[in-house]
Each structure stands twice: as C-alpha cells, then as structure tokens.
Amino acid sequence: MRTLAQKVFDVEIASLQEVASRLDASFEEAVNTILEVKGRLIVCGMGKSGHVARKIAATFTSTGTPSFFMHPAEAFHGDLGMISEDDIVLLISYSGETEEILKIVSYLQHSGNAFIAITGNSNSTLARNAMHHLNVKVTQEACPLELAPTSSTTATLVMGDALAIALMTARDFTPDDFARFHPGGSLGRKLLARVKDNMRTDRLPFIEPGASFAQLVICMSEGKLGMVIVGTADAVEGVITDGDLRRGLVKYADIHHMPITDFMNGSPIFIEENELVIDAEALMLERKITTLLVRDDSERVTGVYQIFNQV
C-alpha cells in the first residue's frame, strides 16, 4: 500500500511540474484582468471541478479577492441573478465541454461579463471562447483506471492557488488583512487579540518580601504559574520563577534560611494590557522569557501573560 501511495504522489507531482512548465502570458493577463474588475470573481464548476471551485473561491475570498461559488446547474434556475455587470467569472471544466458550463458561456457573452477558463483542452469550446485560458492538461491521472479525476483536479486546485497568491501579492495583502478576515482562527486571534484578553487575572501569586522559603514554595505551587510576584499589585519588587528557585537551590546551601529577596529577579519585564498578543510574544522571544507582568495605565499589575497561553 505504501508503494502504491508513493506512486500516486510521484504521478501527481510530475503532473504539477508538467502544468507549471506551460505557464505563459495568459496567466499574467488573467491576473491583471481580475485586478481591474470592480466587482467580484465568481467561480463555477460541475462535479469534481465544482468541489475544487468551491475551495478556490474560498481561498480568493480569504486573501483579498471577493469571490463566491456558483453551481452551474442552479444557475439557470435563478442563480444567474448573482452575477452583476461588474463581475468576472472563472469557469472550470477539464474537458472544456461540460454542458452546464457551456450554457453559462452563452449567458455571459450576452450580458457582457468577461470570463476566464481553466481546462485541460486548449482546443475546447470553453477555452476558445474565454478571454483568457489557463491550461491544466495532465498526461496521466493517478487513478490506475484513468477514470477518477486525480492529477487533473490537483492541477486545477494548484492553478487556483497560484491565481490567489498572485492576486494577494499584487494587492499588497498583509498578515493584518488576513487576520481581519480570520478573526476566529489562531492567526487572526494572535494578530488582533490584546494581552488583556488572554492574560491570567485570578489568583495571582503575590507574596510579601518578608515571606519565608516555605511560604514561597506554597505560593508558587498554589499559583500554578511557575512563578511568584514579590510585593503588591501597586508596588512590585520583583519576581521569582521556578527557574530562579532551582538555581538558588544549587547555588546556596542555606537558601531555606535566606530572605527570598536575595534570589529574586528585581527587574521583571512588564507589558501594557492593551498591547497586542503578537507584540507580547515578540518581546518574550527577544528577552528569552516565558512570562510578562501586565499592568494598566496606572502601572498597577492586573495580570500575568505567559507564552504557553498563546491563542
């Protein structure tokens, strides 16, 4: 089974290299045409091409090119009303002769909407009538029966990704733009979230400077943050991490009888609670630390942010 799987990978990789070698000026022209459109990019495909078209439309939308999928069979039962005069259409059909797709061609020509075609047949009806044609012809499908679309659908998907990335680059689409479109995803939360939204605020492990070693150990264990804050929220004198504690045990034979301020870090790193999470984590990476004390506008400690709490 592993040998068979390897063959599938080999065939599909070879197919992608084959398609990539045929990229020509039509690709650049297609990108520039989409960039000039005032409306949306509507993606349409039937069967397996339809499944691929849905994913391509989703990728366009999330990377700065407004887009949606239109089912060709539903198009002639009212969904053609989705297409406005400012829209451009991307039609996908490997054969270039899919009946439902060709019906849409006639409508688009009548309404004056430009359309781009992705096919595996440059002499097909769809390719010959398109404003721009992107050729995804493959020599071999990975299916041993040469029946199930495999290499061809992979090539189509990658062509869609190539268009999306080219458009994304041309539009100067930034990580912040991506985050705005993905507020529910991990990247979006990291780029948009504030420290105050992700910090620990309850049961903060404050300890008096005059506390005993035993009280320090108990406070650190109960706080479950791997550290304690020496002082109060309004007057922090320092922090002691579990690392400071371990190093102290090695360095000082009589640490159990020493003032805890003798082995605390008297210069903790603070961050404002309205700072972005991504900036907090950049600071921690720069300082090679995993914990920040969070303070408000009055410089009062209101929480603790730790890198393993990242969203």
Rank of each mutant, 00 (worst) to 15 (best):
D10K: 14
E12Q: 12
I13Y: 15
V19M: 09
A20C: 07
E28N: 02
V31L: 07
K38L: 10
G39V: 07
R40Q: 14
R40W: 01
C44F: 00
G45S: 13
H51T: 07
I56K: 01
T59H: 09
F60Q: 01
T61A: 15
F68I: 05
M70L: 15
P72L: 08
G78P: 09
G78K: 07
D79C: 11
S84Q: 14
L90P: 03
S95T: 14
E97C: 08
L102F: 08
N113H: 09
A114N: 04
S124M: 08
L126K: 04
L126S: 10
M131Y: 12
H133R: 12
E141N: 01
E141F: 00
T153W: 05
L157V: 02
D161M: 06
A164H: 10
L167Y: 14
F173Y: 14
P175D: 10
F178P: 10
H182G: 06
G185F: 06
K190G: 02
K190P: 00
R194C: 00
T201R: 15
T201S: 13
G210L: 05
A211I: 02
L216W: 09
T232W: 00
V236Q: 06
E237T: 02
G238W: 06
V239I: 15
T241W: 07
D242Q: 08
L249S: 05
L249G: 13
Y252I: 04
Y252K: 05
A253M: 11
I255Y: 02
M258L: 15
I260Q: 01
T261P: 12
F270D: 14
E275P: 06
I278E: 08
I278S: 09
E286R: 15
E286D: 13
K288R: 15
D297N: 13
V301C: 12
Y305V: 01
Q310L: 12
Q310G: 01
